[in-house]
């Protein structure tokens, strides 16, 4: 009996070393992560690392550079065009973000009301966001044309302006023009995301506030805005990041001109590195953006933290 039982059961097979390693949770975990890690390294870490490295060299196009330490940064420190681009970037980001926020919130509040053809209007609002930037930038280029601008034409017909307006040729007007184009393009993102946020506010809160005697302005100030604040933090962080690193719009509309008045750090970096051939210096300008972007991310980190009233908690 004992022998037959022992024979009928298959003897435990010897597991090989390879099998045992493959069955280890940690090894398996690393194995499954490898493809994703490889992608991240190849397309994210390597270019970023290369950029940072180039910033410390005097590489030019067609000539491998040597390590020069902080020389590029020292020369940028005394470079007025660089500082102008920093100023431009801040002005551009600050003004455009505020306008995008205010207009986007206003649009979201409008779209949250009962409108006829609401779905269609929402789809149309998304258009500027959907169209490729270069395409809309070319359209704006035509709108801002010194001779054929439809805006100038309209103002002339209304009798508000006599001559023509040099939309992209005058430093101050050019700054305003590119900001306007950026705002036009950025509003849909803000509006649609805030609209999604508005729709999560239960209507009964507004009804309760109405019964409590709140006017529509008080309801906005005491109910809508505080309830929306977590989403505003997310949206505006992203909006600031997108605006700060903007390149396409400026590059198509003005290429940084006139007199570098619209040069952003991103466009200046490209200008110095590729057409100018100074890869090292261009990379240094790009790396100089990192502290500012980190600042924006820190802002989002604290802004995104859940408010005290959002924290759950059971007795």
């Amino acid at each position: 009996m004992a022998t037959t039982a022992a024979l009928s059961r298959p003897a435990p097979r010897e597991t090989t070393l390879a099998e045992r390693i493959l069955q280890d949770r940690n090894v398996l975990g690393i194995l499954f992560m490898l493809p994703a890690a490889a992608f991240l390294f190849l397309f994210l870490t390597y270019p970023l690392g290369l950029g940072v490295y180039l910033g410390f060299t005097d590489t030019r196009i067609g000539r491998a550079g040597v390590w020069v330490g902080f020389e590029n940064y020292e020369s940028l420190w005394g470079d007025s065009v660089f500082w102008l681009s920093v100023f431009n970037t801040f002005l551009y980001t600050f003004v455009a973000s505020i306008l995008k926020f205010m207009l986007g919130l206003w649009l979201a509040l409008l779209l949250n009301e009962h409108l006829p053809f609401k779905a269609l209007i929402r789809a149309i609002v998304l258009l500027p966001w959907v169209v490729p930037t270069v395409l809309s930038a070319i359209a704006f280029w035509w709108i801002f044309d010194a001779q054929f601008s439809i805006v100038t034409w309209s103002l002339q017909k209304l009798g508000l302006v006599q001559g023509s307006i040099n939309w992209l040729g005058d430093p101050q007007i050019a700054r305003a023009s590119v900001i306007a184009a950026n705002v036009w393009r950025g509003i849909p993102f803000v509006a649609i995301t805030l609209l999604a946020g508005l729709q999560t506010i239960p209507p009964s809160l507004h009804e309760a506030a109405t019964l409590d005697g709140a006017t529509s302005w008080q309801r906005f100030w005491h109910i809508t805005l505080p309830m929306l604040s977590p989403i505003i933090a997310v949206v505006m962080t992203f909006s600031v990041l997108f605006t700060f690193t903007d390149f396409q719009l400026i590059y198509v509309l003005t290429r940084g001109g006139p007199l570098n008045a619209t040069h952003l750090m991103a466009t200046l970096s490209f200008q110095r590195a590729i057409p100018g051939g100074q890869l090292g210096e261009g990379a240094a300008i790009a790396v100089a953006m990192v502290p500012f972007l980190l600042g924006a991310i820190m802002f989002s980190y604290f802004g995104l933290q859940r408010r005290r009233w959002q924290q759950g908690g059971q007795d």
């Binding site: 239960p202 309760a208 019964l211 309830m227 959002q310």
Partner: peptide
């Protein structure tokens, strides 16, 4: 008048 709602409608913030 004052009303008590089904979902209470307390201001969460």
């Amino acid at each position: 008048i004052a009303m008590v709602f089904q979902n209470y409608a307390l201001y969460p913030h």
